[in-house]
Simulated scan of single mutants.
Amino acid sequence: MWRRGALVVLVGVLAAGLLPAGGASEHEAVPDEVRLTLFLGPTALGFIPLLEAGEVAGVPLSYELVPQPDVAVSRILAGETDVAALPVNLAARLYNGGADYRMAAMYLWGLLYLVAPEPVTLEGLAGRRVYVPGKGATPDLVFRFLLEKRGVEGVELDYSLPPAGLAQAVAAGKVDYALLPEPFVSRVLALREDLVVAFDLQAEWEREVGTPLTQTCIVVKGEFLQEYPVFWKEVRRAIEESIHQVVADPDGATSSPVVEKLGLTSEIARAAIPRCRLSFVPAREARQAVEAYLGVLLEYAPGSVGGALPPAEWYVE
């Protein structure tokens, strides 16, 4: 369901009625609205101030919070959104499949953690059963890559529970070793005092690969870039400022009523923000890290990235 942000009365708009205050040049049109698609949950946390503002440089913002990737995919394939936050491999797969949505920036650099009764190394998992949500999903691929790189054998990977079911089993004390993404990490830690974050998959990845683990990126419709190149800079600036505000003041951001719309409580959102590693990095600057990540996925599951690394033009200047 699309939500329309508050309309902003523009003061000092030229007679042509085309300029956002402080925005694009007087000869460039701006859209009637900016359409934004986000997943419910922690990947939308950096957008809280922007969603609360409901506009970009005077142009109304419409946003949709989707529960599943297939909904976001349908919006993109139909060209019904201008900007979206997507898993990096999904964004690459869609572009390789012909959807002209280009990577504008990396945004979320962390989500995956192993929770356990005590701190443990990858090598210390030998002989243990570790529950992993979704065989062949990106958390599984990253985890198996790290085990292989370290030469760790004898880890029994159990894929029998989906993410929500796995989190419930951990919270109920039925599972002790589990690979979980946020916000499930924060939820189970709040319910079980005997659990800790045993290790950070992002840190393990960077130790092995030499670049950060890229997880969620921001994409923009190619047609939007072409029609509104100057206004796009306003959109990009608004997103970057929103993310910075959340990182700088997580208490203030998570007190917003928008948090509840994301399917999170203020307490869980506040706990999850540091572990999400939110940081806006322009696409061209993030390219090396993105290609390192996609290269591993390409080796383990070529279909997960669309069979090839995206070309240079995928990365927005």
Rank of each mutant, 00 (worst) to 15 (best):
Y159L: 07
L180Q: 00
D200S: 14
E193T: 14
F199I: 05
A178G: 07
K149N: 13
E156Q: 15
R207N: 13
K174N: 13
F199E: 05
F145N: 04
E206K: 03
P162Q: 11
E148V: 04
D158H: 08
E153W: 12
K221R: 13
L201C: 10
A167V: 07
V197M: 13
P181E: 00
E148L: 10
E208R: 01
L147W: 02
Y159E: 06
V197H: 08
T211H: 11
Q168K: 14
L161F: 03
V209G: 07
E148R: 09
P212H: 01
E193C: 12
P212E: 00
A172E: 11
L189C: 10
E153M: 12
P183N: 04
V170W: 01
D158M: 08
G154Q: 04
V142K: 03
Q202E: 15
G210L: 02
G210F: 04
F145G: 00
G151N: 02
R144F: 13
A167K: 06
V196Y: 06
D200L: 13
E206N: 03
P183K: 06
E206M: 03
D200M: 12
L189T: 04
V188D: 02
E206I: 07
L147S: 02
E206W: 05
L179M: 05
C217W: 09
A198M: 09
F143K: 01
V209Y: 01
S186Q: 05
P212C: 03
L179I: 07
V188C: 05
D200C: 12
I218G: 01
V170G: 00
E208A: 12
